[in-house]
Structures are given as C-alpha cells and as structure tokens.
Computed example of a mutant assay.
Amino acid sequence: MTHQRAASSPRTVLELFWAFSWLSLQGFGGVLAVVQRELVEKRGWLSNEEFVEDWAVAQVMPGPNVCNLALMFGDRHFGWRGAAAALAGLLALPLVLLLTAATVYGQLAGHAAAAGALRGMGAVAAGLIAGTSLKLLAQLRQHPLGLALVVAVALGAFGGLVLLHLPLAVVVFGLGGAACVLTGWRLRRGASS
C-alpha cells in the first residue's frame, strides 16, 4: 500500500501550539471532525492516510485520543518540546473555558433552557462524528483487508458494543487484535508476491 505524504508541516513550536489551541476551541462535544479538517484539509500537515493511521494508534493507546494524537504529532515534528506544545495548546484554553462554563452552569442548572441547549449540542456532536466517519470511509477502500472485510469489522465492533454490551477492552483487544493480525498477514503476503 503506498502512502501519500503531507504537503507541509508546522514551522515552529509556537505555530504548533496555536494550531492545537484553535483546534481544541472548535472541538466541543468531540474533536474527531475538527482534528481531521484542521490537520488534513486546512493545514495539510497530514495526508488522509497518515491521519487514519495516527488516529488508529491514538485510539488504542490509553488516555484521550486527541491528547495521544497531539503528543505523537508534536513529538514527530519538534521532539519533546513539540509534544509539550501541542498538548498545552490542546488543553490550556479549553481548561479556562471549562472552569468558566462550570461556574455559569452552576448558576443556570435548574433552568429548562440550559438542559435543552445541552441536548441540542449532543445532536450536533453526533452529526459531526457521523460526517467525519463518512469522509474517512473513502480511505478504507485502500485498506489491505478490502472494503467488505473492513465494514464487517466495523459492524462487528458496533454490534459488540451496542447490541451485546461487551466491554470496550474486549472489543478493542479481541476484534481489533484479530484485525491487526489479519492486516499484517495480508501485508506480508502482498509484499512477498
């Protein structure tokens, strides 16, 4: 499988900090849609292929996905300083906003309008995640397992989590591990032919 490389990269640690700050300020309710749009489509720091691979690694590592991605991305470009800058950019301004919002919400928690606003934000977040998933689906056509098997794995994960109520660790290590082994086998088989 050939990989398209990103066209550019961050020029300074400060640029990296502000990029992740801007990214985090847009990511209310989840950042997957925002991360892909900012790093791939707007800035061109990652290709779609690189994003899918990095996001997959970030998801299986312990901790918040986007924090893992920020650490990996920052380290790749500027070492430990880049990792610290990307993570600080991701967390500093949202922390201030969260503390402010918590204070305001403490005053308004009993109002019906506040509860309605939170439910509305949940619907928007679900739509953003669904939209980004559809964008990334195109990349899965190039996956070594083939689109049909990848969709079967995705449906298996959905079924395991939503329908069978299996623990996330069981799905990630069981189904995810099997998909990794099968992908490695297919890549080795393809390289030897």
Rank of each mutant, 00 (worst) to 15 (best):
M61H: 02
L137R: 02
G190K: 09
R5Y: 11
L23A: 02
A58N: 09
G176Q: 01
L25S: 05
L90Q: 09
T132Y: 00
F78H: 10
Q107D: 06
G44V: 09
H111W: 09
A83T: 09
H111P: 01
G27D: 05
L155D: 08
W22R: 06
L69P: 02
A178K: 06
L166C: 11
V34K: 06
T2S: 15
G116M: 12
A169I: 14
Q59H: 08
V170A: 15
S21M: 12
R76C: 03
A70Y: 11
V34I: 15
V151P: 04
F51K: 01
V13M: 03
A84G: 08
L108M: 13
G63K: 04
A109D: 07
Q4E: 15
V162W: 13
S47K: 05
P167K: 12
S21W: 03
Q4S: 11
L137S: 00
N65R: 10
Q139F: 00
G30Q: 04
Q36E: 14
G131F: 02
L182K: 00
G127A: 11
L155Y: 09
F51R: 01
F78E: 07
S9A: 12
E53A: 15
R186A: 04
E15G: 11
A109V: 07
V162I: 11
F173V: 00
V35Y: 01
A115Q: 15
E41A: 11
C180N: 02
L164M: 14
L23H: 05
R141G: 14
K42C: 00
V181D: 07
L137A: 11
V34L: 10
N68F: 02
T132I: 03
P62D: 03
T183N: 04
E38P: 05
E38F: 05
V60M: 12
V170Y: 10
L163Q: 11
F173C: 12
V150A: 02
H165K: 15
D54M: 15
F17H: 04
Q4I: 10
L99V: 10
R43V: 07
L90E: 05
M121V: 01
A114H: 11
D75F: 14
C67E: 15
A148D: 13
W45D: 03
L98K: 00
E50D: 09
E38Q: 14
A138L: 12
V171Y: 01
T103M: 14
S8R: 11
R37K: 12
N68P: 09
P62H: 08
A130P: 04
L90F: 12
S24W: 05
V151W: 01
L161I: 13
E49F: 01
V181H: 09
H165R: 13
V162F: 12
P167N: 14
V96M: 15
L14E: 12
S24M: 02
L168W: 13
Q36G: 02
G122E: 08
H165I: 00
M72P: 11
A58V: 08
Q59N: 15
R76G: 10
Q142T: 03
R141V: 03
L161S: 07
L163M: 08
C180G: 04
T2F: 14
F20C: 10
A178M: 11
L187R: 15
